[in-house]
Amino acid sequence: MPDAFPDFTPVNLLTGFLGSGKTTLLRRLLHDPALSDTAVLINEFGEVGLDHHLLERIDDTMVLLQSGCVCCTIRGELAQAMRDLQSKRERGIVPPFRRLIMESTGLADPFPVLSTLKSDPVLRHHFKAANVITTLDAVNGLVQLETHGESVRQAAIADVIVLTKTDLADEPAIARLIERMRRINPDAPFVDAQGDHFDVDHLLSGASVSGEGAPSKGGFYCEEPVCAIGEAGSAHQKPVHSFVMTIDARIDWTAFGLWLTMLLNRHGDKVLRVKGILNIEGEDNPVAIHGVQHLVHTPVHMTGWPSDDRRSRIVFIVEGLDADLIRRSFSAFNRLGLPQPAVKITETA
């Protein structure tokens, strides 16, 4: 008999700054038939307004909607809410959901949520991180990115960005916001919440934090050189930079592991994101890696190269770290593992 639910249930994280339209998006998702096999963890029932869609109240924190979606509020610890949900699923008290969507609070740094999934002794055997969806307000998003570090972090960590309130903003303002976002997070696709082609399934199953899913069109993750951002931000904000390292030589996996773990141990809180496709010495197919601050997801062995270009590419989004120094450091470490004298890195910052 096939399992009623997958061994590792994918968890989509929905984040976005205060007032950026998370709740509106959630309300829309909850009514969508595509979420019939989904559980949703939200901050407050009251905000979403579920009364007209209730099928059954399971307990104080959990309800079943007419669409088949299980909806729960988080009271206290997130890990406890997830364990409770998992326990009810195993005992058959709630339907065997196959996906979990989690709403983070508007001011939260998303990293601790992802960290909980990896480190909790129970949850890590049942759940895995899927993609991070960040809502971005087309009207106020630019100001929020300039003035709130949390907003930049939420944007940097996103796998998909949902532009909200586009019906209230003019086109030049939207173009400026997209241009700014491209410099923070060069490869995350944009989805217009008001658009005709808004597809819930596509939104939830896109490229993920664990490196699974489709690479960006025409190549992998980041096509264009990306320059710094943040100098124009408020005085207390450190500049957030993104840059791409393109590496001609093959990468020694052992040296790479030592280098990245050492870098993240010392500077993990400033490495908002590291994401790459690696040409590993001794391997025919590329390996995708993906990390968020101190957390690195399990490396994915890709089935093939997205193009004829066999060079490794690593995208970094960092806060206040020197890109040149990261490049030099990587080169010096990789040299320890490889027979050739030096690693040539053509790079852009």
């Binding site: 280098w259 773990t261 500077h267 990261i326 450091s329 010096a332």
Partner: peptide, 27 residues
């Protein structure tokens, strides 16, 4: 490895340290 290395040596193990990179580049 690295948290323990810093703990027992009492030193900061920073891969972005200029002196470390120069020593490793020394080959």
């Amino acid at each position: 490895l690295w948290p323990l290395a810093e703990k027992i040596s009492g030193r900061v193990c920073d891969p972005l340290s200029h002196s470390l990179i120069e020593k490793l580049e020394g080959g």
